[in-house]
Design a protein around this nucleic acid. Structure first.
Lengths: 221, 221
DNA sequence: CTGCTAATGCGACGAATGTTGCGTTAAGAT
DNA sequence: ATCTTAACGCAACATTCGTCGCATTAGCAG
């Protein structure tokens, strides 16, 4: 389960894609052309750089504007708040083509998921962690986060389906519960308890969940 | 595992205990007497009330000062920030005499822990959630949160020790892993994914962890 | 190229947020 | 009761944050 890819490279794309930033999605003809897209790319790149230097609690609209060379007012108008910037960064970094890796075993698939999550929470700066922080401050960020992970968990459910097809685990295994059992300890330990957690530990929680599923412990309801 | 008890009643104690607020813990003789303690009690009660009305993102020093009848400057001097207020509230609400309930079975003990956590995250306003939010903004809040939960998990380890004594689970069962497997899904689903999670769901994660431990899945290392 | 106008730039403004210096109050000691 | 001084109240100040009106720039259409 990936965190949003770290978006540095993705920022460049924005100039081409010209997706609509901010929030004003009125039905009229917009003007997503060159400059607007360039501004978005510059600003989001600046957000990422500021995040790397000062972290979430040191992230300000003014600093982002100054670094990007875009005027304060423009940033306020298009993104409204710091959290709005992070939401947009998350949206840009979200890889819609992502699907969980297929290793041939439930255990291997879960280990792979946990490694991606572990990387996304451990990397500095962690966009994932920043958006989590933002989600406690504005409903928009909370919704964006919720939507992102909901999508990821839904896509990941195929891992359990494949294991059922292979006969590894009971057919009535509760997919969401398996995923949560495997992944939740990483989030809890790394973002809430703020304790170190090695990749080996992440692997172990994945294996624990796989073994529990095989033992028929995680069957619905 | 309790969240800090909801501190309304505890606020009254402050006038008596007169624990030192804020952060300036210099070695000189302090003056924790009547007025200082009364101010602390008033302010922290106001914090709790404001939290109930406006939530964490609507919590401001000015509003707390106005409600408590204490001057802005005093609040800034003693607590520095909104997060400092929450840290102090957490410290006051922390029940040092807490020990996990003893039900006679590992499953029952874990269910009881999860119910306490579920309640602390579900109650409005949730001081626990507010402190989590604060922990993303200041290192002090992060440390306070870390310390609080570290203490709670250490105390809770006795639940696994008792189960081992009873012969319910293998002697080399990894206590921390059992606790995390049981409790992490609650935090993850309720505070990160922002999805509903019933008490019955909380119970089930507790039972899952107990069954996994019995099956020898959660043995050290 | 020319006109239209969305998007940006610009400066000024008001509000919210913290800070500082100094006078006042009251806790604790004698 | 009196003295000392930590803690608090107060007002003025500085800074940051977010908004507004208007001028300027630059997509896009014809």
């Amino acid at each position: 389960m990936p965190a949003p890819r770290n978006a540095t490279s993705a920022a460049a794309d924005a100039a081409v894609t010209g997706a609509e930033g901010g929030d004003d999605a009125r039905g009229e003809r917009a003007r997503p052309g060159g400059r607007t897209a360039r501004v978005r790319a510059d600003v989001l790149a600046a957000v990422e750089a500021e995040l790397a230097e000062h972290g979430y609690d040191g992230l300000t609209v003014d600093a982002v504007a100054a670094r990007s060379g875009v005027h304060r007012t423009t940033v306020y108008r298009r993104w409204r708040t710091v959290d709005g910037l992070l939401v947009d960064l998350l949206a840009m970094g979200a890889d819609d083509s992502w699907i969980p890796a297929e290793t041939g075993t439930l255990e291997g698939d879960l280990v792979e998921l946990n490694r991606e999550i572990h990387a996304s929470l451990t990397i500095r700066p962690s966009l994932t962690t920043a958006v989590i922080a933002a989600s406690f401050r504005t409903p928009e960020a909370a919704n964006a986060l919720h939507g992102f992970w909901k999508d990821r968990y839904e896509r990941s459910a195929i891992v359990i389906a494949r294991a059922i097809d292979r006969g590894e685990i009971p057919a009535d295994t509760d997919a969401h519960r398996v995923l949560l059992t495997a992944t939740a300890p990483l989030f809890h330990q790394l973002t809430l308890l703020r304790q170190d957690l090695s990749e080996a530990d992440a692997d172990r929680y994945a294996r624990d969940a796989a073994r529990a599923a095989k033992a028929g412990i995680l069957r619905a309801p």
